[in-house]
Design a protein around this nucleic acid. Structure first.
Length: 465
DNA sequence: TGCTGATTGAC
DNA sequence: TCAATCAGC
């Protein structure tokens, strides 16, 4: 029997358009493996909501592989040790995987490549979860991009991405490793019942991803340019968790949007390119998750306050659009993009809480939590990142609510205690008559918008001194 | 992919 | 009185 080839799944839990899978099949019988490696990830080990998703996605991948004659080996521990040991014990000379951008993963992969080299084996990394590799794209000056628009033009200038690779009919494979664990042994599901409502919104796995993009391109894409900011209906693709776990590739999304021939496709492609831009930033600035990219923000006068942070996390700030968003996040593990900007702006600017605290909460509660997108987006709102929103751009949560959730549908869906308020008061319940307000059981605003805004502007102004 | 307050001009 | 416009934060 020829030597097996290790196919190491990381953030590309799919069989379609998977270059590592195609390369592995060409070289011999495949040993597909997934490793839960929390130690290497450290502080950025997958959060609670992500682990729920991962559990179901691995179950789906296991079924899909078995339908093609292969078994997924599941391991838990340090990949740095386990991958070379697996190569050693099976005689594998080749390991194929998709390239990762997270700093801890890059360091780990280079150590693994070295360890494999010492036993005569090779790690080959493929472009799998991005349109192009961050190190392959440079501005006209030969430097990394730090502004979105020219970056976006550079991506479009690459031309249409290659066609997606097909799903192999069969995956010739060797039996799973003898120490492969049952999925339950990874202990990915939450012990408490907080993820019970996730399945109302989500079907993790490659098949769920395919269904969802089909629904989006036939129903909402044509209106995407106009409707995508409204959080109250199904106006966005909802592909972020599928994309984060690699159940579909960005170029599959690209081609799906193009094939639909619908009006909103360029706007949608630009959102995919925002994600690409975040990965570009993380590749060139690995400190992105922890440190403000603009140096002056190191002396920002944050006012850390556990009570304020907690009120925001639980959706008890007294601003309906903020609270509805935070309840949606808790209930469904996801948040509409417009509302992400609103709640982030509120935490940072009105409450003066460090953006890292907001980023950490999203990391634990979002099913799509992704180190590049999450970190870049929080820095964007804080004004401390590359090409970030200017500091004086303070969202007014009342106006944002009235503009994008005009009929209050979104607020009523997640804050049933406000359902009886008329549309003209749904985003400003404190203006309701006192007896109505008393019956609502909804908190008064934690800070007035005007006071929060003035305080934020003063804090940001202090950076210039 | 802001918001606010001042100003202007139509009525 | 109010919508439209615009500068400054």
């Amino acid at each position: 029997m020829p030597d097996p080839v290790i196919l190491w799944f990381r953030q590309d839990l799919r069989l379609a358009d998977n270059p590592a899978l195609v390369a592995a099949i060409l070289e011999g019988p495949v040993l597909p493996v997934y490793i839960l490696d929390d130690e290497a990830a450290g502080r950025w080990a997958t959060g609670g909501a992500g682990r729920w998703w991962l559990h179901h996605s691995l179950a789906s991948l296991t079924r899909d592989l078995e339908a093609r004659g292969a078994s997924l080996t599941l391991l838990r521990g340090r990949a740095e040790t386990l991958i070379p040991a697996l190569a050693q014990s099976t005689g594998a000379k080749q390991v194929h995987a998709g390239r990762l951008v997270e700093p801890f993963a890059r360091e780990r992969d280079s150590r693994i490549a070295e360890a494999l080299g010492a036993i005569g084996a090779t790690l080959t990394l493929h472009t799998s979860s991005l349109l192009t590799e961050p190190h392959r794209i440079r501005s006209a000056h030969g430097t990394p991009f730090v502004v979105y628009s020219p970056f976006s033009r550079a991506i479009f200038a690459l031309g249409e991405p290659d066609a997606a690779l097909p799903v192999p009919d069969r995956v010739p494979a060797v039996p799973p490793a003898s120490d492969s664990l049952p999925l339950e042994a990874l202990e990915l599901l939450p012990k408490r019942d907080w993820a019970d409502a996730f399945p109302e919104l989500w079907t993790p796995g490659e098949a769920g991803a395919a269904k969802r993009i089909e629904r989006f391109t036939t129903k909402a894409l044509s209106q995407y340019g106009a409707d995508r900011n409204a959080p109250g209906g199904e106006t966005t693709s909802g592909m972020s968790p599928h994309l984060r776990w690699g159940e579909i590739s960005p170029r599959q999304l690209w081609h799906a949007a193009r094939a639909a021939g619908a009006e909103g496709q360029d706007t949608y492609l630009k959102e995919i390119i925002w994600r690409e831009f975040s990965y570009h930033l993380l590749w060139h600035r690995p400190e992105l998750p922890e440190v403000p990219l603009r140096a002056e923000f190191a002396r920002f006068p944050w006012q850390p306050d556990a009570k304020l942070l907690h009120a925001w996390q639980r959706g008890e700030t007294g601003f309906p659009i903020v609270d509805a968003g935070m309840r949606q996040l808790w209930k469904h593990g996801w948040l509409h993009n417009r509302v992400r900007m609103i709640v982030a702006s509120f935490l940072i600017k009105h409450l003066l809480q460090p953006w890292q605290d907001g980023s950490a909460w999203f990391w634990d509660t979002l099913v799509d939590a992704d180190l590049a997108s999450n970190s870049a987006s929080w820095q964007w709102v804080a004004g401390s990142g590359a090409d970030a929103a200017p500091y004086f751009r303070v969202f007014n949560p009342i106006l944002q609510g009235e503009k994008f959730d005009t009929d209050g549908r979104y607020v009523r869906a997640y804050l049933p205690e406000l359902a009886s308020l008329p549309d003209n008061l749904i985003h400003r319940p404190w203006e309701a008559p006192a007896e109505v307000r008393a019956a609502l059981r909804y908190p008064a605003p934690i800070i007035s918008h005007e006071e929060g805004r003035d305080r934020a502007l003063a804090a940001f102004a202090s950076l210039k001194e």
